[in-house]
């Protein structure tokens, strides 16, 4: 009798659960489908690319070679992107960690005002409206058409968000901890505690700098000075002369660094997001 009563609810099909996982799995499918399609397209031979077969008849990796040789500045553009992105990641993350620490654990005058201005700046399209003056500043500094010069305006791409995130992360650390850490000289211990938050900031800045188009397109003119995103996006948008597989190969080349970084850091990234990066 007792056993029967327990088994009754189990025998009913868990429709709610099936629907839940069904929706989630199909959404994941929608997310992954374009990526898989582009990836497969990049290794298709030309006849395969223009038929509707998903799986290629035979694999042809020649598109990657064509993509890299079709635009002769591409290796230089790739290097430019790496230089600018790495510099942005390192500098912005460092200053955001310092500022976040000061805003929580140091007696900063005007704490609320500073934080308020940072947050308010998120609601203003400063990158667009300030573009004319950013151009003027860069011009005065002699940095128009200079790849390294991009690093300066790039600091602000995700600076406000980064400071906000780091502040949220430092808030989760008890106030007494920095005091005792200072006594012991164990500042590296602090970094360990905020590690996941730092990963979130690093990735946020990576995405912002690697995919930035407007500033790079406005502040540089020569193709060999430009970043990968600018050159590829222009090629992508006016791609009349491009063959589909070549275009797909270029796209894979451009997104690969991001995916690799994410695959490498995803565990800390997810933890960082949950830990308070998003709660602030």
């Amino acid at each position: 009798m007792a056993r029967q009563r327990r088994s009754t609810p189990q025998r009913r099909l868990p429709w709610g659960s099936i629907a839940k996982h069904g929706i989630l799995i199909s959404t994941c499918g929608v997310i992954l489908f374009p990526l898989a399609w582009v990836l497969l397209l990049s290794v298709k031979s030309l006849p395969d690319a223009y038929t509707n077969r998903i799986w290629p008849h035979h694999f042809d990796f020649g598109s990657y070679h064509r993509a890299l040789t079709a635009i002769d500045t591409l290796p230089q553009n790739f290097e430019n992107s790496i230089v600018v992105t790495v510099a942005t990641m390192v500098i912005t993350t460092t200053i955001a960690v310092l500022a976040g620490y000061a805003l929580v654990h140091l007696p900063t005058p005007g704490k609320r005002l500073i934080l308020g201005i940072f947050v308010a700046s998120l609601f203003v399209p400063s990158r667009v409206t300030g573009l004319i003056s950013i151009w003027e500043i860069q011009d005065r500094l002699g940095l128009i058409n200079n790849t390294w010069g991009l690093i300066l305006p790039y600091q602000t791409l995700a600076l406000a968000v980064s400071v906000f995130i780091m502040r949220g992360v430092f808030e989760t650390i008890p106030k007494e901890l920095p005091e005792s850490a200072r006594v012991d000289g164990a500042s590296s211990f602090m970094i360990l505690l905020v590690r996941n938050g730092v990963i979130v900031v690093v990735i946020t800045n990576f995405i912002a700098a690697w995919g930035e188009w407007l500033l790079a397109n406005t502040l540089t003119n020569d193709q060999e000075k430009r970043t990968l995103t600018v050159v590829l996006a222009s090629a992508n948008a006016g791609f009349g002369q491009w063959l589909w597989p070549t275009m797909a190969a270029m796209y894979v080349i451009a997104i690969l660094p991001g995916l690799l970084a994410f695959a490498f850091a995803q565990r800390w990234y997810l933890r960082g997001l949950q830990e308070g990066a998003l709660k602030g």
Partner: peptide, 13 residues
């Protein structure tokens, strides 16, 4: 994790 402006090519495709 991907650069936004580059998505135009694939969505076109």
């Amino acid at each position: 994790m991907m650069p936004g402006p580059l998505g135009i090519g694939p969505i076109n495709y």
